[in-house]
C-alpha cells in the first residue's frame, strides 16, 4: 500500500490486513496460551492436568459449536479487519457488534462495502482500546474505586447496562420496520414466558431470532407486505 505516491490498491490493503491479522493473532494466542505456564513458573504452582482435561472437554462441547457459528455470522457483518480484532478482544455480541453497527449507521456505509470494512475496523479497534484503557484505569484505581462501583445505590445502573444498550439500539432498528420487529419480538417473549430458563440462553437465541427476522424479511418482501426495510 503506497498512498503517498498515489498508487493505493484496496487489494494490497486487504492483503496487509490479513497478514497483520494472522501474525498478530498468532503471537497474541501464543502469549495467552503461555500465560498459565508463565504464571506457574513465577508462583511455583503447577497445572492440574486431570482437572484441566475434564473441565476443557465440558467447556469445548458447549463453546466450540457456538464459536464456529459466531465466526460464520460475524465475519460477513464486520469484515476481516474488524473480525480479527473482535475475535482476539472478545465481548462481541454485547459490545463490538453493536458498536460497529452504530459506526456504520453514522457513516452511512453499506454492508460488504469498502467503506463498511474500514469504518468497522476503526470502530472495533477504538472500542477495544477504550475497553482496555477503562479496565486499566479501573485496575489502577481498584481500591479507591471499588466502594463507589459497588455502592448499593449505583448497583442497579451497572446491573442494567445491557438493557440500556439494547433499549437504545432497539429504537434505532425497530423503527425501521415495526411489522418485521413483531415476529422475533413476539417469538422471543412467548418462548421466555413459556420456558423461563430460556431467559438465560440469549447467546444461542440471538442466532434463532436473527434467522427468523431474515426469513420473515424475505417472506414479507415476496408477499409484497413490505416493499423495503429502511436502512
Amino acid at each position: 500500500m503506497n498512498i503517498k505516491e498515489g498508487t493505493f490498491s484496496y487489494e494490497d490493503y486487504t492483503a496487509s490486513i490479513h497478514k497483520s491479522g494472522r501474525i498478530g493473532l498468532s503471537i497474541a494466542l501464543v502469549m495467552l496460551l503461555a500465560a498459565p505456564f508463565v504464571f506457574s513458573l513465577v508462583t511455583g504452582a503447577s497445572i492440574q492436568w486431570d482437572g484441566f482435561a475434564k473441565a476443557s472437554i465440558a467447556v469445548c462441547i458447549i463453546y466450540i459449536p457456538s464459536c464456529i457459528v459466531e465466526y460464520l455470522i460475524y465475519v460477513p457483518l464486520l469484515g476481516p479487519g474488524a473480525s480479527y480484532l473482535a475475535f482476539i478482544t472478545g465481548n462481541i455480541t454485547n459490545l463490538k457488534l453493536p458498536c460497529a453497527f452504530n459506526a456504520r449507521e453514522t457513516a452511512g456505509a453499506e454492508v460488504g462495502s469498502k467503506e463498511n470494512e474500514i469504518v468497522s475496523t476503526l470502530s472495533v479497534a477504538t472500542s477495544s482500546l477504550v475497553t482496555m484503557l477503562v479496565i486499566f484505569i479501573g485496575v489502577l484505581a481498584l481500591i479507591p474505586l471499588t466502594p463507589l462501583l459497588e455502592n448499593p445505590v449505583l448497583k442497579p445502573a451497572f446491573d442494567n447496562v445491557i438493557p440500556a444498550l439494547f433499549g437504545a439500539l432497539g429504537f434505532q432498528y425497530f423503527r425501521k420496520s415495526l411489522k418485521l420487529t413483531a415476529i422475533p419480538l413476539v417469538f422471543m417473549t412467548a418462548l421466555c414466558v413459556a420456558v423461563p430458563s430460556m431467559t438465560g440462553s440469549t447467546s444461542f437465541l440471538i442466532i434463532a431470532c436473527g434467522a427468523l427476522a431474515i426469513g420473515a424479511r424475505y417472506v414479507f418482501f415476496r408477499k409484497g407486505w413490505i416493499s423495503e426495510v429502511k436502512r
Binding site: 454492508v111 439494547f166 425501521k176 440471538i206 436473527g210
Partner: peptide
C-alpha cells in the same frame, strides 16, 4: 448494499428482539 444490507438490518432487529423480548417476558 443489496440483500446483505437488508439482511443485516433484519439480523440487528433479531438481535435487539432477543434481549428486549427476554426483558419483556
Amino acid at each position: 448494499g443489496g440483500f446483505a444490507s437488508i439482511a443485516m438490518t433484519a439480523m440487528m432487529i433479531g438481535l435487539c428482539s432477543t434481549f428486549v423480548g427476554s426483558y419483556l417476558s
